Computed example of a mutant assay.
Amino acid sequence: MDFSLYTHCVLLAYNEEVRKQCSAFSCGNTELDKFFEKDAENYAVEMLGKSYCWVTDDEQKQIVAIFTVSNDSIKTKDLLSSSKNKLQRHINNLKRGRSYPAVLIGRFAVNKLFQGNGYKIGSQTMNFIKSWLIEPDDKTACRFLVVDAYNKESVLSFYLSNNFLPLFKTEEEEKAFYHISTEEQLHTRLLYFDLKIR
């Protein structure tokens, strides 16, 4: 299916007014649906994250995808040498430091009506975010895009196919970094994308 977000949709700040103008949204994940229905606006009011959505530009408006972004950073002080070296590989030695500016994709969902079938809405949205953050008129600099992705094969595969990399080589390394016991399940994996080498 030849469907382009740029051709068939408009990007809007996500709020109650937009939600009321559109058909009901569901991505098939109860936790994400609940966040976008009840919590996204509170996050914006508290300045913890701002949500944006792609909405079809036809009469029966539908939210195709929603994402929430906020400021973040990657701190290198406690990273293992292998993770730190991988992260800093493309940063000039004179510019290397203990912390690098990043933007966190806190939540991301695609309407289940637009999942699969060749739409590639997820990848289109990731490509948009990557380009959006390096626009020349952007007010702030950020080197990395980060996401705490659900630790599920399908989710991780999506981000890896969009050129995100795991910050930690193994789940064991990530658990150790976050002081999670080895017996506990790791619910998310921290992935990053270097905007400079896109």
Rank of each mutant, 00 (worst) to 15 (best):
T76G: 04
Y6A: 10
K139T: 13
S81H: 10
F67A: 01
G116D: 15
Y52P: 01
R98A: 13
R107Q: 15
S4M: 07
Y43R: 03
E41K: 11
K38F: 10
S51P: 06
S70T: 10
H187T: 11
R107L: 01
Y192E: 00
G28S: 06
E135M: 09
S131K: 15
A149L: 00
I74Y: 14
Y100R: 03
I134V: 09
I91T: 13
D33C: 03
T30L: 13
E172T: 05
F36V: 02
S123Q: 14
R198D: 13
N163D: 15
E135D: 11
H187A: 11
S154R: 05
D137R: 09
E31W: 12
N93W: 07
F177L: 05
I66W: 10
K84G: 08
F36D: 09
S154Y: 14
Y192I: 06
R98M: 14
L79I: 06
T76L: 05
F168G: 01
Y52T: 03
T30I: 10
V155A: 04
N85S: 11
F144W: 02
D58P: 01
E59P: 01
T188L: 06
V69F: 07
S51I: 00
K77A: 15
K61L: 11
L186G: 08
I63A: 00
P166L: 10
S157L: 07
I63F: 01
T68K: 02
K84L: 06
A40F: 05
A44G: 13
S123A: 11
E135V: 12
T182L: 07
V110W: 05
T188I: 11
L79E: 10
D2E: 13
E41G: 12
I121N: 01
Q60V: 10
D137N: 15
A40W: 01
D194I: 02
E183Y: 12
D148G: 04
L160H: 14
L79P: 01
Q62L: 09
F114C: 12
F193W: 09
R189I: 08
D137L: 12
Q124V: 08
G28M: 07
E174N: 08
R89M: 12
L79R: 10
F3D: 05
T7Q: 15
F164P: 02
T170A: 04
K175G: 03
Y159I: 03
L167K: 00
Y150H: 04
S131G: 15
F177M: 03
N162H: 12
L79D: 08
E174S: 04
Y14L: 01
S123P: 03
A40G: 14
D148W: 09
V64Q: 00
V155P: 00
N93I: 13
L32K: 03
K84D: 14
A24E: 12
I66K: 03
I105E: 03
S123G: 05
D57T: 02
K75Y: 11
A176N: 11
G106K: 01
L191H: 04
S4Q: 14
Q185T: 13
T188C: 14
V146N: 00
R98G: 12
Q62G: 02
Q185S: 08
V110P: 10
E171R: 12
T7H: 15
L167G: 06
E173T: 02
M47K: 07
S73I: 03
F128K: 02
N127H: 14
S73H: 06
L133S: 06
Q185Y: 10
K77T: 10
N93T: 07
L191Y: 07
K77N: 07
